[in-house]
Structure formats: structure tokens, C-alpha cells
Nucleic acid binder design. Sequence first.
DNA 1: TGAAATAATGTAACCGGTTACTGTAACCGG
DNA 2: CCGGTTACAGTAACCGGTTACATTATTTCA
Lengths: 345, 345
Amino acid sequence: MTRRQDSVTIREVAKKAGVSVATVSRYTNSSAPVSPEVAERLAQVMSELHYMPHAAARQLATRKTRAVGLLLNNLRNDFFVPFLNGVEDVVRKKGYNLIIATYLADSREETPPPIGPHNTDGMLVFSDGLGDEALASYHATGFPMVLVHSTPPASLSIPSVTVENIEITRQLIEHLIRVHGRQRIVFLRGPKGQEDSFLRERGYRQALEANGLEYDKRLIHTGGFERGIAYDAINTILSNGNRTQFDAVFAGSDDAAIGVFRALQQHGVRIPEDVSVAGFDNLGFGRFLDPPLTTVSAPTETVARMATERLFGLLDNQPSEGAVVLPTELILRRSCGCQFEQPAL
Amino acid sequence: MTRRQDSVTIREVAKKAGVSVATVSRYTNSSAPVSPEVAERLAQVMSELHYMPHAAARQLATRKTRAVGLLLNNLRNDFFVPFLNGVEDVVRKKGYNLIIATYLADSREETPPPIGPHNTDGMLVFSDGLGDEALASYHATGFPMVLVHSTPPASLSIPSVTVENIEITRQLIEHLIRVHGRQRIVFLRGPKGQEDSFLRERGYRQALEANGLEYDKRLIHTGGFERGIAYDAINTILSNGNRTQFDAVFAGSDDAAIGVFRALQQHGVRIPEDVSVAGFDNLGFGRFLDPPLTTVSAPTETVARMATERLFGLLDNQPSEGAVVLPTELILRRSCGCQFEQPAL
DNA sequence: TGAAATAATGTAACCGGTTACTGTAACCGG
DNA sequence: CCGGTTACAGTAACCGGTTACATTATTTCA
């Protein structure tokens, strides 16, 4: 392999163009006027030399990285496609770099977060990507952050963007109960401590209560929003010797619903005749599943865009606080037992 | 908002611990032994001060960024979930940062690639994420790169990881022709100039030729692998006054197949009775679609892992060349007309 | 016409790490 | 007891940009 050749520095450009490094810098950053002749000569020399300023040097001098981070627990969900698109699009248009990292709960105590003030100008924290302590410690230094799909602890005023969970879940569960006569509804509640999960459980309980049904712990499965976890959870329930009875599953995400479909199908359980299934997120494939998936439409890409834009607002020192909660909508299709699909969007 | 407070520097740590900066550096990097007492004192001081080395300073001094880049055209495909997982997992385990950027063909002439030697130690180039000229120019400087889902121009020895396209496409098309009697097969060939597309077209043509069918340009649609593009393409065909007849669609990706399903459904075309549909990638939802999707199984996450590992091999100066081509497999389900699903994997 | 303002550029310190080189003390074998 | 290692630690140059301040040339205007 060719040995990595030393990169062209600003001093070489300056020398070749017969000007000082300051002038070159001013030209590349348009930070001060440069005479037309010099500008032309520099453009010439820079393209000849393929000059590209060394990012680290610039970062060190300006104390700005022109990068933002996205910290999440994992990427194992089709949900992240619209999400990443929203983030990436905004970041690119701002001319920033995007650093993506997963940060596992397990590793938290041993290693510091891979993203922070040391390598970015600000960051999006997805769900419970960061513990409260780390959040507080970063926030204390004034590091710009925006939370997505979670809200900050009461003591911290960190902007957040989330979706409405409680009411929509209550509606969905109530629909299963009242319209389809479901009584024992399995709830795959997502990761422990995750805020969406917590709020949805509130809606779930409200619906049960309002309809005189009892809350049965055995129907609640804590895990994650990924299809593999959902598959295992349903499999476990179905394979149990003392098989827990259930007549519906609220999967927590469309991705998880795929896992539910798979487990039910393998056990010969019919959807929706034997068991109603509902997801969350309204991903593109849902309406073409067999049966079409009842779900909750969440504006995922919009959430991502808004969060990213708020982050850039912070970078521009536009103070911004408070939680933005975007609306969600029930999408009824056949997997819950409904006979006709809602009119297409 | 709290003003961003100045970060703790190595000199402050050194002063507070009563040692020199060199010692602190040696301690943080384990680059040379440090006496136990000093080590303990430093550990103490560093945690008190919440010291975190400034990435840019370190990068400037070592001329290593400990970051790798991933350059792609877009992220609009569920395909990218397993792909990103593979990349991110390997990168994280190596303790590197991952910078992701899309680089649009349109913008190429005006702006330089957002990722390169100036901000990363190496990069994965997905498909035709970078033009040949840029590729050559980066490669000439010895910048480590690995191509994914494309191979380098003949003159450049850049490692690549791809999947087998020609033979599997030939098999798939031949299956449609021989088993299901299809004769006019629409081919959504993906982006112009994209290598997978090009190779699959070869397989497509081979199958037609071997079976005495004519190649009809009107059946070929160049665009992208995304569902929206596929939807538009099929819609256009179906809405045409002089409606082009067809009895099968090879969608190019499972994501695109969703768009095909949608367009066909809206026009009342039955799958597979009227039109066979096949995808590519074997994403998780495919087997649960209505009808279950015939597709090609590609080891996407493995492709991603191998490519990333090869990239790290280059960073470690393990010279590596040549194309790795991973095998693909036909997955027959009902959307092509087959009555029984293949045994589950 | 000369002082002041303005425009364009240069000099050199600085950002916060790493590391080559140097120094000192303890230790080792003969 | 002494020359040679070995272990640990310090000094200061350096990485490649930015920018405060200084400088020079040109223009403006009383």
C-alpha cells in the first residue's frame, strides 16, 4: 500500500501563493476581505495542491468541531430509517458532520460516552441513551443537548421532542377492548426505564381501569422494541407449560410486531381471529402485512428534524427550553380485528 | 443558557497532581509506565476534575482521528438497518467514532466530500457514493478505503465487498419465466450507474436470452432502490394511456417491493395472480407481507462487518486487496406465484 | 497638504494534546 | 565499587489551523 502522504498545510499554500498564512485562512473562511488578485491566486494554488484544511487543527483553534452527535442505545429497528433521514438531512444542510454512536447500558459504568463536548458541539440523545447523572454533568457544562423520545429529569432544563403516548395508547387499548372484546392484552413494553414505555403503560392501565379489567403483571413483558426480543417474548409465553392465556398483543413498535407475527404464526395462532396485534410507528410495510397492521402513526422523521433544528438553535445561542410533544394517530387495519382498512393517507 | 465552560486541560491536571504533562499523557494512554503512586494520584485528580482529553488536540498531535467514515447516497431504505448495525458494531468495538454522511450526486461538483483524510482515518464508500475521480484522488494519497456494493475501477486496487448479483438474478428471472410462465418482466434497476443494477441487468438479459424472450427497454426503469421511486415507476406504467403490458416485477430491493405492492394494490392488480413480484435483500418483514415476498437473501450485516473489518485491517497496515463477493440465495414465497413458502430459515 | 480613516496583509501567540530527547536515581553483575 | 541498564519523570518542540495586534499603502476630507 502507498504510504499515507503528508497532507498539504496552510503554510505550503501560503508560500506557494506568496502570501501569509493569515491571508490564506481569511480567504478560506471568508472571515475578512482579500484582494481579488490574491483570491484568484489562492484559488488556483489551492486546487493545484488539493488543499483541504485539517479538521483537527481548525477545531483546536476555534474550539468548534462542526460536528453533532447522535447517541442511541441501538440501531436495531426499522424505525431508525426515517429517523436517521431526518437527522442527517438537517445536519448536512447545516454543513455539519454527524457522529453516530450506540452506548450500551452495560458499558456505561466502565466507559465514558463516546460522544460529548470533547468531540462534538452538541448532541441528540435518543431515548435513554444517557444516564441521568451523565446528562446532568454534561448539561452543567453548558453542552448543547436535545432529548428525543424522552424528557429530562425535573431538575434539568434540556429541550426535548417526543410524541404523545398516553392518550393514544389508551385509545388503542380501549379499541381492542370495546370493539373487539379483548380482555387479556399482552403488552410488550419496551426497554426498562424507557419513557415511551412508561407512558404507554399509563395509557394501557387507564384503558383497563376504565373498562373494569384487571392489570395482570404476567401480560407485561419488558425488553425492547426490536423484533427479536418481541419474538422471544411471545415464544416464551406460548411455550410455557402453564401457558398464559391472552387474546391480544400490543407490540410497542411495528418492528416488534414482525416478531410477534412470526411467533404467533409458528404456533399456529391466527391473527386476528385468535389474537389481535397492534404495533406503533406506522412504518411503510405495515399496511401490506398479512393481515395489515393496526398501529399508531408517529411523525418520526418530523421528530428527528425538529430535534435537530432545536439543537442547531442551541448552537446559535438561541435559548430554547421545554418539551415539544408531537401528535400521534390511530391507524386501524385488520390485525386488530377491524374489517376495513382506514382510508389511505 | 449557561455559557459553555472552558474544558479542563492536561496542564491543569498535571499541575494539580504535581507532575508534568508528559506523565499525564503517558498515564492516559498507557504509553509508558508510571509509578503506582503517581497513577493513583492522577486517577484521583482526573476524576475530580472530570478531565476528558480534547479530541482535536489529540488528533492534531497524533495525526490520527480514531474515526472512520461511511459515505452513502442516501439512507432511505430499510436495508440500511442491518447494514448500519454491522458497521456500527465493529466500529464501536474498535473504540472508533463513526461519521455518517450522504453525498448527493447533484452536489458533487460544487462541494468536496464531507468525509475524507481531513477528518477520518479511513472510510467505507457505499455503492457509488463517490465518483471515480474522487476515488482515484483519495486512493492516490493512500487514504484507506473499502468499497461496499461496488468494485473499484480497473486501475485502482481498492478492496471491496459485494454480493453475487448476476447468477442469482438470472435464476430468479428464469424462475419467473419457466415456473410461472412470465414473459414481460418489469425490472426496476436502481440508480443509474449503480453496480448492483448493472450486474443484475446482465442476469436479467441472460435469463431472457436463454428462454427466447426479447429484451424490451420499456420494461426497464432506472431510478433507485427506494419504495417511493418504485411506487412512482409502477404508477407511471399503469397510468399510461398506452399502458405497457407486464406480468411480473423484479423490484430490486424489498423496500422497493413495498412501493410496488402499493401501486399494484391501488390499481386493483392482484399479486401474484396478475403480476408476480420479487424483491431483493430479504428484509425481516418480507415473509409476512400479503402475499409473502419472493426475494433474494443477501447477507447485508455480514457484508457490513466484513467491509468494516477490512477497513480496520488497512488502518493496521495489513495490506489487503481484491474483491470479496458474498453468496446470495433465492427465497421463494408466494408473491412470485409459488404456492408454498420455502422452509423457514 | 497632512491627519485620520480604511483596506489589505503580515507576525506570532495560542488552541491542548503527544513525544523525542534528556536527566536522575535505583539497581545489577562482575 | 563502578560502568551499564532500567525505570520513571520533566522540558519543550511540534501538529496545522485561527486571530489579536501590528504594519503598510491608499483614500478621504478638513
